[in-house]
Nucleic acid binder design. Structure first.
Lengths: 182, 182
DNA sequence: CCTAGTTGTTATTCACTGATAACTAAGGTC
DNA sequence: GACCTTAGTTATCAGTGAATAACAACTAGG
């Protein structure tokens, strides 16, 4: 029976929960998000979330890893079209327009003081850096500047200066974003 | 009587609490830090912290504003020596080495989804941008690139790639940081 | 010295949150 | 159709954390 199944396999459910967690953590961050919020988003009970991931921390770590993987994947797709920094830049703009993936990673940065979280986050970031260089053949300086601009946009996204439901543009925002507004 | 006073004026205490809050929030962020942690750092009782600042949110906002002001002030001091981006860059490296001010601001970014926090954080950031341009006379592009590199370093600081008690340097970190390591 | 205002505390509350335990029911298999 | 594994629930707990209330003690002014 495939058509009407009321229950999902653990793997399917895990996938669905990860999606919900991505949304939840992306706005509340690690300590600002409850496992119950994630559960409600996915339409299951809170204890079940814990049962699947063990602890809230494990859930967050899985979410950060997922975000890192997805970002990397999007870069690879962009590079398949055209292996340049400009192409990856467009991909980044798209990611920024969705906000979730990028913001979860940023929340990972700020949770890195926790010794259980830091290593995973650094690994994600390092992988992204390497991916950018490998895909585009960019030199150290180019890659650094690309990443720097990415981090600026990421912060502006978190601040609601760019991205979905961004705040009305004040003069300094328009200046800072420059002519090719995101 | 000035010599031996066992109590501080409300203003002195507020100052001291703000200092403690800067330290506490800088590692835990908004929701990851308790008012009790701030109180203990300052050596007073938790309810007293609340009495002085009203709510935890008010305390956080005051802390973010303070961080913004201090950063701006450091830039002004640097510009007084030499009004160039390079000079402000050095000032930024110093701020990064202390980590607290910069990190509190970053935690402000990630807490900006809260409609009570966002506006204050954006204001701080906007003021810093304006300050940089006014002090150095940098053009839009220059200022943007400066700020971008600043945000990259800020994120790396939060990740413990640079700054106090940084993690052992992995290859990608060395590459990313380039020849003039921070 | 004494009193009024301000600094600061302790005791307490109430809501919330992560996690556990115990139970229920679906669904494939022999 | 009985049965066992796996998906999922409800009930509950123990701890925490922000905030309130009531009280205590320092300090300055008259």
């Amino acid at each position: 029976m495939v058509v009407t199944r009321t229950r999902l396999t653990a793997e399917e459910r895990q996938e669905q929960l990860l999606h919900a967690a991505l949304t939840a953590f992306s706005t509340g961050g690690y300590s600002g998000t409850t496992t119950d919020q994630v559960a409600r988003l996915a339409g299951v009970s809170q204890p079940y979330v814990i049962r699947i991931f063990g602890t809230k921390q494990q859930l967050f770590l899985a979410t950060v890893r997922r975000a890192g993987d997805r970002i990397e994947q999007r870069f690879r797709e962009a590079a398949a079209e055209e292996p340049t920094l400009a192409s990856l830049g467009c991909a980044y703009d798209e990611l920024l327009a969705e906000r979730e993936l990028i913001t979860v990673l940023l929340h990972g940065f700020t949770a890195s003081a926790d010794p259980a979280i830091g290593p995973i986050v650094r690994d994600c970031f390092g992988r992204i850096y390497r991916t950018i260089r490998e895909l585009t053949g960019a030199g150290e300086d180019e890659a650094r500047e690309f990443l720097a601009m990415g981090m600026l946009l990421t912060c502006l996204g978190a601040m609601r200066v760019v991205g979905p439901d961004a705040v009305p543009r004040e003069p300094w925002m328009t200046e800072l974003l420059g002519p090719d507004q995101v």
